[in-house]
Amino acid sequence: MPEQESRATAYTTLAAGGDLRHELEIKRSRFITVLRRSADEDTARSLVADLRKEFHDARHHCSAFVLGADRDIQRSSDDGEPSGTAGIPMLEALVKRETLPGVSDLSDISAVVVRYFGGILLGAGGLVRAYSESVSSALDAAPLVRRSRLRICAVPVPHARAGRLENELRAAGFVMADSSYEAENTVLRLALPDNAADIADAGARLAALTAGSAGLLPQGTEWIDTAS
């Protein structure tokens, strides 16, 4: 069966560029939070495995992740902490995070909190607050990016003209996907809102920039990082 297209047309995720780390000390316990952009469960779970190796002497490696444009995959683990005091608060910190006023749409992100016990018991309520605060504080420092489902339109252009036209399209505000190359042409790829009006407007602007020598070839849709 073909993969069902998501209901969402945009969501927020961690910007590409590697894991983000943040550390808190609460009553002598160290809480080391690591966030990773994760497109699938294997990537999310690999973060736990990586940190178990790196922090092999830590008592707990608690985790939570949210995946998919519709955020339909959500998992958490207390990893030995009292039930409900670590993984669920971490998951709620991800799921309830407002990325815009009144909008909670964070996804494709995994979080692991490594805890080194400091000798002072925090109690159930203290643990809930500590794990929630650990993830929330890491998110405060995290570079986030908007990810949108856009219609890809190809623009075949002779190699000698491709660089200049790409610069003009970027200057005009178009989002560009990766180019591809053929024997005689560079195929520029525009990422446009997936509706007829925007595609028609883009076609008209392209015609104006190229004196009518280039046109749009609509293709499939892709998820593209569009703004921070």
Results as ranks from 00 to 15, higher is better:
60 H>T: 05
56 H>N: 14
75 R>K: 07
73 I>V: 13
73 I>N: 02
83 S>V: 07
92 E>C: 11
70 D>R: 15
47 L>H: 03
82 P>C: 14
95 V>A: 12
56 H>A: 15
90 M>E: 04
77 S>M: 03
73 I>T: 12
95 V>D: 02
53 K>M: 10
85 T>F: 05
77 S>V: 01
55 F>G: 02
46 S>I: 09
59 R>Y: 11
76 S>I: 02
64 A>Y: 07
84 G>W: 08
82 P>A: 15
87 G>M: 08
59 R>H: 13
90 M>T: 11
82 P>V: 14
66 V>F: 04
91 L>K: 08
94 L>D: 04
47 L>Y: 07
78 D>T: 08
86 A>T: 12
48 V>H: 03
52 R>V: 08
86 A>G: 06
53 K>S: 10
89 P>N: 01
75 R>A: 14
67 L>K: 02
75 R>I: 10
79 D>L: 03
69 A>F: 03
72 D>F: 05
57 D>A: 15
75 R>Q: 14
76 S>L: 02
60 H>E: 00
76 S>A: 06
66 V>Y: 05
46 S>F: 10
84 G>A: 04
52 R>T: 07
68 G>M: 08
67 L>F: 07
81 E>W: 00
95 V>H: 06
57 D>Q: 14
54 E>P: 01
91 L>M: 11
51 L>P: 00
57 D>Y: 14
58 A>D: 07
55 F>E: 11
63 S>A: 14
80 G>R: 05
86 A>F: 07
69 A>T: 00
61 H>K: 06
60 H>Q: 04
82 P>T: 13
71 R>S: 01
75 R>V: 14
63 S>L: 04
72 D>E: 09
76 S>N: 06
77 S>H: 09
77 S>R: 12
55 F>V: 10
59 R>W: 13
60 H>V: 06
94 L>Y: 10
77 S>G: 08
66 V>G: 02
89 P>R: 00
52 R>F: 09
46 S>H: 11
82 P>D: 15
74 Q>W: 08
62 C>K: 13
74 Q>H: 05
72 D>K: 05
91 L>P: 09
90 M>I: 12
52 R>N: 04
70 D>C: 13
68 G>L: 07
88 I>R: 14
73 I>A: 06
92 E>K: 15
56 H>E: 15
54 E>K: 07
49 A>L: 11
50 D>M: 13
80 G>F: 05
85 T>K: 02
47 L>M: 03
81 E>T: 01
82 P>Q: 15
75 R>P: 02
49 A>F: 08
93 A>I: 09
47 L>G: 01
65 F>G: 00
93 A>W: 11
91 L>I: 10
81 E>K: 00
70 D>H: 14
50 D>I: 10
85 T>A: 04
71 R>T: 01
95 V>E: 02
63 S>R: 04
72 D>G: 07
82 P>G: 13
93 A>T: 09
87 G>T: 05
